[in-house]
Each structure stands twice: as structure tokens, then as C-alpha cells.
Design a protein around this nucleic acid. Structure first.
Lengths: 205, 205
DNA sequence: TCATGGGAGTAGACCGGTCGGTCTACACGA
DNA sequence: TCGTGTAGACCGACCGGTCTACTCCCATGA
């Protein structure tokens, strides 16, 4: 279905696909899915249109690949932190979000998590892209809920909390902070998020 | 500069402008500023292109008019609640947000606050539209901060809080909840927001 | 009283540019 | 020679915006 990565022919071809994805991630995060035409992605990547449609069936399919890539990248970044058994669950969670903050700080200030960026475009996103966004959200939600359950088991948070619901709230706060950052062009919103969640909401540690 | 409202000639002309604004508010809230072409707005309003450019200088100018209209509508809705001196500040604030929740509930679930909707489009919004969004945010922020100061004066919240910063956090949470609602097509996210903010964050009342 | 001129507003054909997507031609290694 | 991938001209649809033609109302003045 999707072209398989080449085995013998060197890396020029992989390069093309990878260049497209990198350009797409950058430009879509900055301008949104509908706000950026293929021509611009192509120009930025230095790839002709024919090559694009060799690797991807449509702009939509390209978008979904980008969403999944974005999730995988973030997961890779965060996994070692989350699975570090030397620190408590809440502290691990905090570190994971701090990684996200640092990421936002290091990029151009307009650059924001692609998944969040696409989330508010849902109204004019196609059904399949929307589904991909939703799916990643659920995965993140489950991941956070898992950590919260650990925290509950170790007594770091009260047994009365619903981990799934609390995870949803955390994710939702993070998204709000991301919009705020986007408007104000200032990562301070993410600091406010960290303060709020870890000092006041899950506090006393 | 802008065409003055007609004084003597009845209301057909005002009607045209109003119909355009109503259609624009509905369609832009659903599809975003860039996700919806003028032709669609025109068709929905039953107004020819010539009339549109009679009333508005450009799509951009139209967008700014919509943002300001959205703000005014919400302000009118919320003002009586916020200025009701019979209830405490925090309770008034809660009521105002609950009004927002009810509004979201009554509309089609895709329909969301226009200002929030445009906020994440900042990347591909023109400078002037972005400025309008930012301006409305600051006005809301100031409004909330004012209420919080009252709450501080009456001892409902601690004197250590920074009202402006806290107002920013509240607004940011609200936006996160709005995105969440958009993705899940479910207003439960707004309930979570209300619980979090008023039962836990500003709690004990 | 009524002809008339002009501004307000309606109506939609039309413009160049850009959109996502298709198509053919070609380079190159196995 | 055939499959893989590059290259870009080209397509119809649609974008925001312009332009001309037209209707209608009413202010003016003899």
C-alpha cells in the first residue's frame, strides 16, 4: 500500500520522503493544514510534485502521516523520562511536560505541537484527519492516566480521583496553554500551566 | 470610512449587512477564517458579491467586524450577571462561564466561540485580524481580573494571588476546554472546566 | 407638481492567482 | 527492459477582489 522503504538503493529516495515530512511538519505547525498549500511544502523541501504523489496518495494522507510522525517523535522523547523508575510518578509526569515546554522554547515561537495545532481546525478537516487527531489524543490520555494510576497506588494523589478524567483535564489545560502561547508569542503560558498543575492541582510534593 | 447606517431608507440595507455578519459568524466559527470562502458566506446569506464589497472593504475587514461583534454579543450576555451585586464575585464569575457553557450546548456542537476558534489560526491570519483577536483577549482578561480583585477585597480568595495572572490562567483553561469540546463533540469538557476552576482552584465556597 | 440628477445599494460577470491532483516524459540501476 | 523514483507541465475548481450595469429613492428647482 504505502511504498516500502528501499532496501538496497541507498538513501536518496528515503531522503525525499523524509524531506517532505520535515517540511510539512514545520509549515503545517506554523500555518495549519488548510493554511498551507502543497506548492509551498514542495518548494520548501525542494521536491517536485511528481515525487510527492509518488510517496503520498493525497494531501490528506500526508497530513495523517505527519500526525503519526509527530506523536512518535514526542513519544520517543518522553518515554525514557516516563519509564524512569527512580523518580515518583508525578515527578515523572512533570518532567515530561517540562520537556514539551523546552521544545516549544527552542523552536521558533510560532511553532507549536502539530497535533494541537490541527485540533482546532477540526471544523474544516476531513473526517480521516480528524480521526487521526482524535486517536493521538486518546493515546496521550491513556498514557497520562496510566501514570496517574501509579501515583494513586503509591499514595501521591488521593484515591478519590478518576485517573482518566484527570488525564483529560491535564491534556485540555496543556492545549489551552498552547493556544495562549501562540497568541502572546510567549512561552510563559506554559510556565503558568506547570505551576498550576504541579504546584496547586497535584501539589504538596 | 465605513458606510454609515442609513437613517431614512428603511432597513433592507441594514438587513444585508446584518445577514452577512450572521452568516459569517456561523460559518467562520464552524470552518475557520481560512477554511471558508467568501462565495460560501455569500450563498448562505443570499447576498451578491457586489453588496459584500459595498459594506466591507475586504474579507479581512469583515473578519475583524465579526470578532468585535462576537465580543459585544458575549459582553451583553454576561454584563448583567457580572454586575449583579447581590452575589459574591466568584459566584458571579462562575455564572458568567456557565452562560458560555449553555451557549455552547444550545448551538450545534461544532459551533464554538469565534474568537477562540480564530485564536489557533494565528499562524496564517493576517496581522490585523490577529491584533483584533489579541485585543479581545486582553479585554476579557482585564474583565476577569477586575472580578478577581473584588473577590480578593472581600476575602473570597487569598491576598497572595496575582489577579491578572490568575485571569490569564482561567482564560487559557477555558480555551483548552473549548478545543477539547470541539474534538470530542461533547460539552462535558466545559463541565470539567467548571469543576476544576470553581470547586478546586477557587474552591471552598 | 413633476422632471431629473445623483448617491446608495444590488447584481453578477469576470480577473489573475492558487488550490489539490493528474499526466507524460525521463533518468538510472538491476 | 523493466521497476523505481524524479521532474514539471498541465487541469478544472475555487480563491479574494474588481468592474460595470442596473434599480430605486429622494433632493432639488423651475
Amino acid at each position: 500500500m504505502t511504498p516500502t522503504p528501499p532496501q538496497t538503493s541507498g538513501q536518496q529516495d528515503v531522503d525525499t520522503r523524509e524531506r517532505l515530512l520535515a517540511s510539512g511538519a514545520e509549515l503545517f505547525a506554523e500555518k495549519g493544514f488548510n493554511g498551507c498549500g502543497l506548492a509551498e511544502v514542495l518548494r520548501h523541501a525542494g521536491v517536485p510534485k511528481g515525487s510527492f504523489y509518488h510517496w503520498f496518495g493525497s494531501k490528506e494522507e500526508f497530513g495523517i502521516a505527519l500526525i503519526e510522525r509527530s506523536r512518535d517523535e514526542y513519544m520517543d522523547l518522553v518515554r525514557p523520562v516516563l519509564s524512569d523508575r527512580k523518580t515518583g510518578p508525578i515527578q515523572r509526569l512533570r518532567k515530561a511536560f517540562e520537556l514539551g515546554r523546552e521544545h516549544a522554547d527552542s523552536e521558533a515561537s510560532t511553532d507549536v505541537c502539530l497535533v494541537t495545532r490541527l485540533a482546532l481546525e477540526t471544523g474544516n478537516l476531513s473526517q480521516s484527519v480528524l480521526a487521526a487527531v482524535k486517536c493521538v489524543h486518546q493515546q496521550w490520555n491513556a498514557l497520562i492516566a496510566q501514570i496517574l494510576r501509579e501515583a494513586q497506588a503509591s499514595g501521591e494523589i488521593g484515591p478519590g480521583e478518576d485517573p482518566d478524567r484527570l488525564a483529560g483535564v491535564l491534556l485540555m489545560l496543556w492545549e489551552g496553554a498552547t493556544i495562549r502561547m501562540q497568541i502572546e508569542r510567549d512561552a510563559r503560558a506554559l510556565d503558568d500551566f506547570l505551576d498550576l498543575v504541579f504546584d496547586r492541582l497535584l501539589g504538596r510534593n
